Amino acid sequence: MQTRRRKTTAVRARGAPRRRLASLPQRPAIRIPVERILAERRWIAALVTAGGIPPSDREDVMQAVIMAAWRAVEEGRYRPDAAVDPRRALRGWLHSIVWRTVGHHRNRAWVRREIPVADPWSAQQEPPRVDERVIEARERLLAVRVALSRLKQLDQEVLALCAVGHDIRAIARTLGMPSSTAVRQIGRARRKLRILLRR
């Protein structure tokens, strides 16, 4: 029984050059002064805090983010969209650097350390100082403000009314919606806020 070999023109001949897809035009690189990156230090600190970095390591992670961003600018890898607001474009670019740096930091072996002691029940963690608690509270508050700024206007209004102690009926009356709708809106706004704070 003879077999007939199937012919096809879709198979690329061995050694033939590959077809390259037309690449999109690349935006020009922009050199910005390091002061523009340092001006976003508090915003970077809020993202680092939201990333779950402990207070003892936050300063090191922030320095790593700033150095990585400045190195990328020097190497011509900062190519923002000219149609976007300059500060918004810079923050969007820094956002990816922060989360990449936070992820690398949390996955390092020396971060996941354990300190063996002879008597584990006798080991007590040193209580944080008052100034450390104040700094941590401020950074956490800034992280909440950053997360709230990313919510829609209606979600912000709902959470603000809940924060000042209004009940469901008062919130529904203020926003002009049924009480059942207000309950669902509050639940959605709280879930969105929790998701943003866990990032």
Results as ranks from 00 to 15, higher is better:
residue 80 P to W: 08
residue 81 D to H: 09
residue 81 D to P: 02
residue 81 D to L: 11
residue 82 A to I: 07
residue 82 A to G: 14
residue 82 A to P: 14
residue 83 A to S: 15
residue 83 A to F: 12
residue 84 V to A: 11
residue 84 V to R: 13
residue 84 V to E: 13
residue 85 D to K: 00
residue 85 D to M: 06
residue 86 P to G: 01
residue 86 P to Y: 01
residue 86 P to D: 06
residue 86 P to M: 02
residue 87 R to F: 00
residue 87 R to H: 01
residue 88 R to Q: 09
residue 88 R to T: 09
residue 89 A to V: 03
residue 89 A to L: 02
residue 90 L to M: 03
residue 92 G to Y: 04
residue 92 G to L: 06
residue 93 W to V: 09
residue 93 W to A: 06
residue 94 L to M: 03
residue 94 L to H: 01
residue 94 L to G: 04
residue 94 L to Q: 00
residue 96 S to A: 14
residue 97 I to D: 08
residue 98 V to L: 06
residue 98 V to P: 05
residue 98 V to D: 00
residue 98 V to G: 05
residue 98 V to H: 07
residue 99 W to I: 05
residue 100 R to F: 12
residue 100 R to Y: 09
residue 100 R to G: 13
residue 101 T to N: 11
residue 102 V to E: 09
residue 102 V to P: 10
residue 102 V to N: 10
residue 102 V to K: 06
residue 103 G to W: 06
residue 103 G to V: 04
residue 105 H to K: 08
residue 105 H to C: 14
residue 106 R to L: 15
residue 106 R to D: 06
residue 107 N to C: 11
residue 107 N to V: 02
residue 109 A to K: 04
residue 109 A to C: 02
residue 110 W to R: 06
residue 110 W to C: 07
residue 111 V to P: 00
residue 111 V to K: 08
residue 111 V to H: 12
residue 112 R to T: 07
residue 113 R to H: 12
residue 114 E to G: 07
residue 114 E to I: 13
residue 115 I to M: 10
residue 115 I to C: 00
residue 115 I to V: 12
residue 116 P to I: 05
residue 116 P to Q: 05
residue 117 V to W: 05
residue 117 V to C: 10
residue 118 A to S: 15
residue 118 A to F: 11
residue 118 A to V: 14
residue 119 D to K: 08
residue 119 D to A: 12
